[in-house]
């Protein structure tokens, strides 16, 4: 059983205007995210990388095919169950760090665990330890508006790892950072994922970052082509 399993995924978007044909973004595409391994998907802008990640995370539904998360078909779940699955099994990191602006860094990291109903005290301990590991111990009580771009992204990484998910889905996590910060965050993310024994599905156009991963796929012409494999 893989943390994420995509089977024959096709994604079509309805035409914006009447009379125009539907646009197929992904065609009969399959992918397994292997436990404990990092997988990168590279491709040009508009090739459908982010759409594939959204489908893998249950944020979007495929037009055809099935998505399994820890062996459970997303299509069979109602909103509550799907949210629960996302909360406990998947961590997300986006280019725009997407932190809750009114919450402090610590509260942002604690949020997924609080949603899952864990005790605030336990959540705080885990969140503090994650923030310390990423060098943010003196920034814990700052709201995102008071943090730099690199710090925000590190908070987002901590939040993604908070519930000890099986898989981290990252969409251009260093896309908005300068080179120095980007390299820092890349290394931190890969090291943490490895240390914590998580799987990573990374979507990026940064080939250097992508090829640090165990497996690399190129998304081209609506399908995936294997570029690098750990095996």
């Amino acid at each position: 059983m893989h943390p994420i399993e995509l089977q024959c995924i096709t994604k079509r978007f309805k035409a914006a205007e009447k009379g125009e044909e539907e646009i197929t973004i992904l065609q009969d595409l399959s992918l397994n995210v292997i436990q404990g391994q990092s997988t990168a998907i590279i491709g040009r802008s508009g090739s459908g990388k982010s759409t594939l990640l959204h489908i893998a995370g249950g944020l979007d539904s495929p037009s055809e095919g099935k998505v399994f998360c820890s062996g459970i078909d997303f299509a069979t779940l109602d909103d509550r169950k799907r949210s629960e699955l996302r909360n406990l099994h998947i961590g997300f990191i986006f280019q725009a760090n997407l932190l809750l602006e009114d919450f402090t860094a610590l509260e942002n990291v604690m949020a997924p665990a609080l949603i899952s109903g864990k005790k605030a005290k336990d959540c705080r301990e885990r969140a503090v330890s994650l923030l310390r590991r990423l060098g943010l111990e003196d920034r814990m009580n700052h709201v995102p508006g008071k943090l730099s771009g690199g710090e925000k992204q590190r908070v987002a990484i901590c939040r993604a790892l908070m519930n000890e998910p099986e898989v981290i889905l990252a969409d251009e996590p260093t896309g908005a950072l300068d080179e120095e910060n980007a390299t820092d965050v890349e290394n931190l993310l890969l090291d943490l994922v490895k240390e914590e024994g998580r799987s990573l599905l990374l979507v990026t156009h940064n080939q250097e970052f992508a090829f640090k991963c165990d497996n690399v796929y190129l998304l081209k012409n609506r399908t995936l082509n294997l570029e690098k494999s750990l095996s």
């Binding site: 909103d79 509550r80 949210s83 997300f92 932190l99 809750l100 602006e101 949020a111 997924p112 949603i115």
Partner: peptide, 16 residues
């Protein structure tokens, strides 16, 4: 909307 999107991203259901 932004906060709701983030909350849903990290696993909050519509009910929450």
């Amino acid at each position: 909307m932004t906060d709701i999107a983030i909350a849903k991203l990290i696993g909050s259901s519509d009910t929450l």
